[in-house]
């Protein structure tokens, strides 16, 4: 009995460590061009756009998602908060679509500056950046806690 309890406790501690050791960073914001008419989105709507499940904004008009670099901390945190998926899970998700020829992941750019540039180059683009990098060229449609 005593041994059993010790093992259960050890197991629970291991699970909790697993749970809480997910990366936790600064606040992220989902942004569009300051000139975009878009007002606000919720997490599920943003997740559907970035997972390729919808090609339009809920209010209409084609949505063009822009990803940060594959190994960036912002990208990992963005997907964890909106879709619940880790980078590996996300890669597995896209592998399903890529190897059946039914989809390609969002276009990827190298930096936050590049995200802002992309949003203003194509008005219906949508991206995510660190809150500290907000400026007047973009506007927030969702704050990710």
């Amino acid at each position: 009995m005593h041994f059993t309890h010790t093992w259960i406790k050890a197991g629970l501690v291991a699970l909790m460590l697993g749970w809480f050791s997910q990366p936790s960073m600064a606040e992220l914001v989902v942004v569009v061009s300051a000139k975009s008419p878009l007002a606000a989105l919720n997490e599920h709507q943003v997740a559907d756009i970035f997972l390729g499940r919808t090609s339009d904004f809920p209010s209409g008009g084609e949505a063009v998602p822009i990803d940060q670099a594959e190994d960036s901390a912002s990208r990992a945190e963005f997907y964890l908060k909106t879709t619940g998926k880790s980078p590996a899970q996300l890669k597995a998700y896209w592998s399903k679509l890529i190897f059946t020829g039914s989809g390609q992941p969002p276009r990827e750019v190298a930096s936050t500056a590049e995200v802002k540039k992309a949003l203003n180059a194509v008005l219906n683009s949508i991206g995510y950046i660190d809150k500290s990098e907000l400026d007047s060229s973009v506007k927030v449609v969702l704050l990710l806690h």
Binding site: K91, A92, Y93, S95, K96, F99, T100, S102
Partner: peptide
């Protein structure tokens, strides 16, 4: 359609 893609 992706049964051969072990990673998926």
């Amino acid at each position: 359609d992706y049964r051969d893609v072990g990673y998926a």
